[in-house]
Design a binder for these strands. Structure first.
Lengths: 233, 233
DNA sequence: CAGTGGTCTAGACCACTGT
DNA sequence: CAGTGGTCTAGACCACTGC
């Protein structure tokens, strides 16, 4: 045989995927049983089973014990965008990631206090960090954290470790909320990210919850043209 | 035996998960080999293999052939943002969604032709639609489609159905690529979305692939302050 | 009842890594 | 080289479904 065999189960997966993508098998259709595919491909049932099981995990198939395997309904049209940590994003491109701490201290910003569930007499910890990709500033990270949940926040060395790394080690996160908006850069952001006047920013706001109150509230400012968030599936 | 057995591979998954969650096995640690787990649980290697393979798919483990299985670095978990269709997004807020077709015809835009894999003598179909939320314009949709894959595109009534709905009924999509950037609004976009001069836009670019070439290329322009993409998990 | 998928076994061969 | 994971086989028993 001259043919290159990329493992049998992958070949079966490709076969089924192709039938679905080409429209030969429509959503809701009953597809051949494991036994039939075993005969067709001349493999063991475990091999067919693995292929179909993985495709079920990928939401392309639906299986009902005792009945058969069906083409899954078109996926709900919602699409997912992946947001990787800034470090991974940059390292993934093979570039060098560095950061510079602009501010690390206490804040009484009323909006931040409200989000973190602190009353107006309290305070939050705040850090401001600029992230560089090959020495070009690409992200400004403005972070507020709950002082009760992260009492030693101000003692961290955020030139060595990123706040995200610290926080994921420190506290379990229950819920995360995001929003992405486009905004004009503030004067501070424009200066730190070395942007032209009027150049737009993308702002990712991320709130993490740990129980009843928000644990952190972060604003990530990206210079519009210098960084793209991308996804694929 | 009184114990309820929830299938062996699930038991092994639970065992490994517990070791990781309890901290007994730290990120980066080498965990017992398949062979050792086979001896410990008295099962076949395929059973252990399935458990570890699935945990690898769940990003809890990392496997290196010839070396071993390691506890994955939890920091590498990426976050996902969900982008729903404009209609769902608006309907989900209990608001009224309407749209207005601005343009429907042929285009020889060189960039679009290149993306769709058409040569410079060819043409693409183009549609431009403004989407309204309670009569406020919130999104400008600028779409290029491959005429061979959607020959009757120009005959559609996009006041009644959205292009996304049409396309998902028409052709199976296998690969999707996204990027989000912030941009200054063009004069046309500023007018259609009734924006102030200098107000920023968020531009979501989505390319769908169906086999070898791109099937569609869409630019979704959002007025910065009027729409947020949000996600949660 | 026969047919389906869910799981499992006890072997096997291979590709890869470290020494 | 011995040890690892990646894949596969040819059976098997079971739970479930529809008739």
């Amino acid at each position: 045989m001259a043919r290159r065999t990329p493992s049998n189960y992958l070949e079966i997966k490709a076969y089924v995927r192709d039938k679905i993508e080409s429209g030969a098998w429509q959503a809701g259709d009953l597809i051949p049983s494991e036994h039939e595919l075993v005969r067709k491909f001349g493999v063991a049932r475990m091999t067919v089973n693995r292929a179909l099981r993985e495709l079920t995990g990928e939401q392309l198939l639906m299986r009902v014990q005792g009945t058969g395997t069906f083409v899954a309904d078109r996926r709900s049209q919602s699409t997912l965008i992946e947001i990787r940590s800034i470090h991974e994003e940059i390292a993934g491109r093979g570039h060098r990631h560095t950061s510079e701490v602009v501010l690390l201290g206490r804040s009484t910003d009323p909006q931040a206090l409200r989000v973190l569930g602190l009353d107006n007499d309290g305070f939050a910890f705040q850090s401001q960090i600029v992230h560089f990709e090959n020495d070009i500033p690409v992200q400004f990270e403005d972070r507020f954290v709950h002082p009760a949940l992260f009492p030693d926040y101000l003692q961290q060395d955020f030139n060595a470790t990123t706040p995200s790394d610290y926080m994921t080690r420190r506290a379990p996160i229950r819920r995360v909320q995001y929003s992405i908006t486009a905004r004009k850069a503030t004067a501070q952001v424009r200066k730190l990210l070395r942007m032209e006047a009027g150049e737009p920013c993308m702002v990712l706001h991320r709130c993490t919850w740990s129980g009843r109150h928000a644990a952190t509230s972060v604003f990530l400012w990206y210079a519009g043209g210098r960084l793209q968030l991308t996804g694929e599936f």
